[in-house]
Design a protein around this nucleic acid. Sequence first.
DNA 1: GTCTATAGATAGATAGAC
DNA 2: GTCTATCTATCTATAGAC
Lengths: 210, 210
Amino acid sequence: MRRSEQTRRRILDAAALWLNKKGLAETSLQDLADEVGLQTASLYYHFPSKDALIEEVLHKGIEIVYEDVRRALDALEPSASYRERVRVAIAAHLSSLLEHGDYTSANIRNFPLVPENLREKNLSIRRQYGDYWRQLLQDAQKAGEVAPNVDLSLVRLFLVGAMNWSTEWFNPRKKSIDAIADMICSMIFDGIGPKEQRPSDGGQKRVTRR
Amino acid sequence: MRRSEQTRRRILDAAALWLNKKGLAETSLQDLADEVGLQTASLYYHFPSKDALIEEVLHKGIEIVYEDVRRALDALEPSASYRERVRVAIAAHLSSLLEHGDYTSANIRNFPLVPENLREKNLSIRRQYGDYWRQLLQDAQKAGEVAPNVDLSLVRLFLVGAMNWSTEWFNPRKKSIDAIADMICSMIFDGIGPKEQRPSDGGQKRVTRR
DNA sequence: GTCTATAGATAGATAGAC
DNA sequence: GTCTATCTATCTATAGAC
């Protein structure tokens, strides 16, 4: 990687950091230049405008979470149940959002109120990622692992929304991401209502069979 | 209400509108003055600073949703099941967020990235509202309507987070808030997994008994 | 209560030297 | 590639007339 490329990357990293911490509103080019150790004018050698810089950060944000989730599912054995697939997808999405750098959370946290011109360029990859989840849930339903009367569209919006909101409350000292993913998966598939359980099933631990 | 009070209120309304639509970042006092039909300097007769104005909008945002939810639950018969209470609370929260003016959604959408000084003043009432949900779920569990091994803290964060994210996808032409609340409630209590159903229970429609 | 006028700070962006 | 210097626009806020 050439030096120029490295500097460019450091600027993007600084932008992701600041977007995630302070938000687009309170992130000036001055802040980014200070973070990288440059003058603001020097940023314009690497990017034509602030918008172009931010656009790239936002794009990488979804790209990264999409790739993380896809990679995690691709690594599963073909025999894996859909419930297990959903659990792994939840864990990968949460991990990408909460543990793997600032790009993903920078996107999720800023997108809702980002100006129109920046939002547009991001919509395409967002739709692709949404379709990926839609397909996963559809396959699960076809396989009989999701009840046939369930509205998958609402489940997807509800589930992804709840995960995206986790940036607001996640505390790594309280619960691990894997533990959270397990519990969310149980909640989504089994519900929180009282069970008329078979005595053989303790209910406490996640069940990976089937 | 005096004329001064009315103008003050119109400024707050304009601020809630703009915060919800454009976000704090892109809301200038010029925008608010234009919306109300004043000069920017005139706003300072009603508020000491922009921060003070925004703070008041943010406070009302949580105050309103809190009151809406509490009022809805208070209106239920004492014999109402906790499942029914949760369903009503979900519907009230969503309705307050998506239908009843801009204050609530202005808060939810801006709070995550709002500057520190504005965030602080909002935390107290937010905690109160969080405690209200915590109590509701605890009571439901004590009454046996939520399985004893369920982590209520995660359920609350997950559920409230998912609802708060609904501002990003809600479309009143596609589904009513009551319908969404019903489905969310079923999803949370019963899960989306396949049921070994008793033949007497169709499963499609919400069940209010118990 | 609302206005005009303006201060003072900071934003994104450009020009040109090195 | 990065710098210094600077332009123009816009922001919050204040002063003082009406």
